[in-house]
Amino acid sequence: MLGDSLTVLWGDWLDLRIRIAQIAASGLVSPLIYILAFGLGLGSSLDKVAQPSAGENYLQFILPGMVALSSMAISFGGTTFSICGERLFTKTFEEMLLLPVHPLSLFLGKMLAGVIRGLMTSGSVILVAILFTGKIWSFLNPLFLLLLVLNCAVFAGLGVIVGLSVRSLESVGLYNNFLIVPMSFLGATFFDPAALPMALKGIVYLLPLTYTSIGLRAAAYLPLSQFPWYSIGVLLLAAIALSAIGAYKFSHQQD
């Protein structure tokens, strides 16, 4: 099954490898704007009245969230549009469905391609974070990278499912507007969810991006004893659940 998944991944990699610079830069604009507007602009005022729960200042506080945000956006968007293009425009997706491989292998191959997209873009944001903070090990330690890969897997998996479900590019825009954009601001990227009222906290903790932001922030700045290990479990369970749904979608897909 692993070999079949890598074969599907290789088909996407042949296209990705000639667009590495474009993919790496595509998700960098929004995080840079947020870093300048919130981290340097708003952050300079917040630092005078409050100390962030992680990091030395508000700019450092939001940088892990920007890594989570960029990996989410590109893993989801790039995967969804890739599958939609194959299904709705080039009409090459039917050939993949005829391959004598397990539906889970098809899902994992497409998901892994989305993970690579997300890592390319988030790698650019990590470079920016290192330049702003000078903390290389904070953003390149094993726990940080593990959470980043899991986040890419979750949203790439979600992108595969959405790509298999929609009937037009306009539908993709609806998913983006009502799912990804709200999660970008409510997924603990700009704030500490522990300080929220209980009602809002219940909503925020339903979002997988929240666990990524919390985990990345802890992996970057806090001692290992304060790391929220549950964040790894939540993201892993989400990835497994999406894999089961995605395999089912592939096994019943009719295009």
Rank of each mutant, 00 (worst) to 15 (best):
V49A: 08
G163M: 02
A129T: 02
A247G: 09
L174S: 09
L98A: 11
G3F: 06
F250N: 04
I180N: 13
I18G: 12
V162C: 00
F93T: 14
D4M: 00
L207C: 10
G77F: 00
D255S: 15
G43I: 01
T210H: 09
A244N: 12
R17E: 09
N141L: 02
K135L: 11
L222V: 12
G39E: 09
S70E: 09
L179I: 15
P103Y: 01
T79L: 03
L174R: 14
L145H: 07
C84R: 00
E170Y: 02
P223M: 03
T121F: 10
L119D: 06
A24K: 00
I130F: 01
I232M: 06
L147D: 07
G159Y: 03
S231V: 10
I116F: 13
M111R: 13
I232S: 10
S251A: 15
L237D: 06
V67Q: 03
F93Q: 14
G114H: 01
L46R: 01
P208H: 10
G187F: 12
L32E: 07
N151Y: 06
C84A: 14
L104G: 02
V29E: 06
Y175T: 14
G11R: 13
G41K: 04
A113I: 04
D192E: 11
L174T: 06
I214T: 10
F250R: 00
D192G: 09
S124Q: 13
K110I: 12
S122A: 01
T80V: 15
L28P: 05
A195R: 09
G246Y: 01
S171H: 14
I240C: 13
F178N: 09
L209D: 11
L179P: 06
A113V: 04
S138M: 03
V234Q: 08
A238C: 13
Y58G: 08
W229L: 11
Y230E: 11
F144C: 05
L209R: 05
S243Q: 00
V162A: 02
Y58L: 03
V67K: 01
I161L: 14
A239K: 03
P52L: 03
L145Y: 05
D47Y: 13
G118F: 02
A37V: 14
Y211F: 13
L97H: 07
I232H: 09
V67C: 12
E86S: 08
K201R: 13
L158T: 09
A25M: 10
G78I: 02
A247F: 00
A25R: 01
G109S: 02
I232G: 02
D47C: 05
T92L: 15
A113L: 02
T79A: 05
S124K: 02
L28C: 12
R217S: 09
E170N: 10
F178S: 10
S44L: 12
D15A: 07
G134E: 08
F38Y: 14
V101M: 12
L14W: 14
L36Y: 03
E170Q: 05
L104I: 04
L28V: 12
G118M: 03
I74Q: 15
D255H: 10
S53C: 03
I23A: 07
V204M: 15
T79N: 09
Q253L: 14
G246I: 05
K48D: 11
P64K: 01
G55S: 06
K249P: 07
